[in-house]
């Protein structure tokens, strides 16, 4: 058996999103159906047992889809700029839950067809009232002329995936010094992304950072982590990795400074324009 896990940076990011106990009720409420399935089986009612098992599975699938929807929603809410989730997972979960509830009422609890449909609808309504609908509108913040919303979303998403790669590599390097250094670098990279989120015009100025430096950092860290994992690191390699990290950190600092200075420049220009306007009044 290999220990290798599938490389899936987008899910790695999503797995770090905490939704707490939200959605736990959806897993707990259908438990009696599972107990029912077991009792039916013990009584020898194979068909009823299979029906109850299938309906329980339906409830669980709805709960899992809902949890995924909650995670996407919570990540969407955390970000200043974000694309709305492509697939309405919460609505999908609500529909599946409503159908399963209706079927459970009809097949296992002896409700009539009309009453079962009504129960399904009430469950759907309850879900929407309790958990809300999926976010549908992109959060475009103050994206202005010069950059398109899609461009900003794509650049930020790609940068976050690279940061997740660095983070994953950091966790596999068991060296306190490198660990602290990489932590600082990740924090600085996140700060630069936050600046771009605040003012998407910065994207044009930060393109080189996002494409070249962040990518380079991810590649170097990943390959060092691989060598480290095989216990094949040498003193020379450690020293040069340390040097690379130093220069990466200073480049990140410079990039941040550059963005801040440009903001200052923007501010200066605005003040000059205002001064000219005031003179002409």
């Amino acid at each position: 058996m290999t220990k290798a896990t599938r490389y899936d940076p987008e899910n790695q990011i999503l797995n770090t999103v905490k939704t707490g106990i939200k959605g736990t009720l959806l897993f707990l409420m259908p438990l009696p159906v599972l107990i029912g399935a077991v009792i039916h089986l013990l009584k020898g009612n194979v068909f009823s047992s299979l029906t109850a098992g299938a309906l329980f599975a339906g409830f669980m699938i709805a709960a899992v889809i809902a949890r995924h929807g909650f995670k996407l929603e919570s990540r969407f809410k955390q970000k200043k700029l974000a694309k709305a989730p492509g697939m309405p997972f919460k609505s999908l979960a609500a529909t599946l839950l409503a159908i399963t509830t209706g079927l459970t009422a009809f097949l296992l609890s002896d409700y009539g067809l009309l009453a079962s449909i009504l129960i399904g609808f009430v469950a759907l309504l309850g879900f929407y009232m309790a958990y809300g609908v999926d976010p549908r509108r992109d959060k475009t913040g103050n994206i202005s002329l010069g950059v398109s919303a899609d461009e900003v979303f794509q650049a930020l998403e790609a940068a976050e995936i690279k940061i997740a790669t660095i983070e994953k590599a950091r966790k596999s390097i068991r060296n306190i010094e490198f660990d602290q250094h990489l932590k600082r670098i990740i924090e600085k990279a996140r700060a630069i992304l936050a600046m771009i989120e605040d003012d998407p015009k910065d994207l044009n100025r930060a393109r080189k950072f996002l494409k070249v430096y962040l990518d380079g950092t991810a590649r170097v860290t990943e390959s060092y982590a691989k060598t480290h994992g095989k216990d094949a690191t040498t003193e020379v390699l450690d020293t040069s990795f340390q040097e690379v990290l130093d220069s990466i950190e200073s480049t990140f600092d410079e990039q941040r400074e550059k963005l801040l200075q440009n903001d200052q420049l923007d501010l200066d220009v605005k003040i000059e324009v205002l001064k000219t306007q005031l003179k002409h009044l």
């Binding site: 409420m29 509830t101 459970t104 009430v122 469950a123 009232m129």
Partner: peptide, 30 residues
Amino acid sequence: MPYIVQKVIGFILLSATVGLVSLQVLFHLS
């Protein structure tokens, strides 16, 4: 309708349907 009231009603409706229907599966057995 205030958000919290809407949420509470939502949870009541969910429990009254999903919760009760699945409990009735058990009652139906006995």
